[in-house]
C-alpha cells in the first residue's frame, strides 16, 4: 500500500470518527448560537422573521433599569452561593474523609441525594418547609427573629433563602469533587508532617489546602458559571418578586421571549449574559491561577 493511500485512509477514518460529534455540535449548538446572535440585531418576535434594526436592542437594554436590577441580583446571588458552597463542601469533605468504608459511602450518599432531585421537587420541598403558616422551619425563624417570616414574599429574605435552597441542592457534587481531591493526597505526606511536628491546623494549611487548590479553583469556577445562570429556582419559588428583588437576567430574558414575544430583545439579553459569564469566569480563573502560583 502506498503512503498516499494510507494517508487518504487515515483522513477518511478521522473524518468518520469526528463526524457524529461535529454534526450534533453544529445542529444543536453552532446553528442556534448563530441564530441568537443574528436575532439580537432584529426586532423579530419569538417565531418568524423580523427587520434588521442594528444595535437598537442593545441600546435599549443598556437604558433598561430592570436590566441593571437583574444583573445586580445575579451578582448578589453569586456572592451568596459560590464561596459559601465551596467552604461548606470542603468542610463536609474533610469530615466525610475521616469516616471509613461503608459508613463513609452511606454518609456521602446522603449528602449527594439532593443533587439527584429535579429542581421542581427541590423547590416544592423547601416551599413546604418554609411555608408561612405550616412550614416546619418557621419556628426556627421565629426563634431568631421573633416572628414568622413569609420568606419568599420578603425582599430581604428572598435571595438568601434561594441561595440556601441552591446550596443544599447542588452541594453534593462539590463534596464529591473535594473527596476525590483529598483521596489524591498521599497519606505519607500527613505522616511526614506529623513527624515534623505539624498540628492538625498546620497539616491543613500547609499540606491539604495547597495540594487541594486546583480542585478548589475548579469548584469555584464551575459554581460561578452555574450560579450566574440562575433561573429555575427563582421562577419556581418567587417568580422574580417581591418588587423585583429576586429578578435575574435569565428571568428577564424568559419574560421578554416567552411572555412578551420579543425574540430579538431576548436574544440581546442572552448575548450580554453570555458576555458577562465569559468575562467574569476568565477573570476569576486568572486570579485563581495567580493565587495558586504564589503558594
Amino acid at each position: 500500500m502506498s503512503i498516499a493511500t494510507r494517508r487518504r485512509r487515515e483522513v477518511r477514518d478521522a473524518i468518520l470518527l469526528v463526524a457524529p460529534f461535529l454534526i450534533i455540535f453544529g445542529v444543536f449548538f453552532l446553528y442556534p448560537t448563530y441564530k441568537v446572535i443574528a436575532l439580537s440585531f432584529t426586532d423579530a418576535p419569538l417565531i418568524g422573521e423580523g427587520n434588521w434594526i442594528g444595535l437598537d436592542n442593545y441600546i435599549k437594554l443598556f437604558n433598561d433599569r430592570l436590566f441593571y436590577t437583574s444583573v445586580w441580583n445575579n451578582f448578589y446571588f453569586v456572592l451568596l452561593t459560590v464561596i459559601p458552597t465551596t467552604i461548606i463542601a470542603l468542610l463536609i469533605a474533610l469530615a466525610v474523609g475521616k469516616l471509613k468504608g461503608r459508613v463513609q459511602a452511606l454518609v456521602l450518599t446522603l449528602f449527594f441525594l439532593p443533587y439527584v432531585l429535579p429542581v421542581s421537587v427541590v423547590t416544592m420541598i423547601w416551599a413546604w418547609m418554609l411555608d408561612f403558616q405550616f412550614g416546619i422551619l418557621q419556628p426556627l425563624i421565629e426563634a431568631v427573629t421573633g416572628k414568622p417570616v413569609p420568606v419568599f414574599k420578603n425582599p430581604h429574605w428572598v435571595m438568601p433563602m434561594i441561595a440556601v435552597v441552591t446550596v443544599w441542592w447542588t452541594n453534593g457534587f462539590n463534596v464529591l469533587l473535594f473527596i476525590a481531591g483529598l483521596r489524591n493526597i498521599p497519606d505519607d505526606l500527613y505522616e511526614a508532617a506529623a513527624l515534623d511536628g505539624a498540628t492538625a491546623w498546620q497539616r491543613f494549611w500547609r499540606v491539604t489546602w495547597p495540594l487541594l487548590w486546583p480542585i478548589t479553583a475548579l469548584v469555584l469556577t464551575l459554581q460561578l458559571i452555574l450560579q450566574l445562570k440562575l433561573f429555575d429556582q427563582v421562577y419556581l419559588l418567587s417568580n422574580g418578586g417581591p418588587f423585583n428583588s429576586s429578578y435575574v437576567v435569565l428571568m428577564q430574558m424568559y419574560r421578554e421571549a416567552f411572555q412578551l414575544n420579543n425574540g430579538g430583545y431576548a436574544s440581546a439579553i442572552a448575548m450580554v449574559l453570555f458576555g458577562i459569564i465569559v468575562i467574569v469566569s476568565v477573570l476569576q480563573f486568572q486570579l485563581l491561577r495567580i493565587g495558586g502560583r504564589r503558594r
Binding site: D188, L189, L195, L211
Partner: peptide, 12 residues
C-alpha cells in the same frame, strides 16, 4: 525522623 519509601516530599 523518618525517610519514607515513597520519599513523601511536598510537591508544592
Amino acid at each position: 525522623a523518618m525517610v519514607f519509601q515513597s520519599y513523601a516530599l511536598y510537591p508544592h
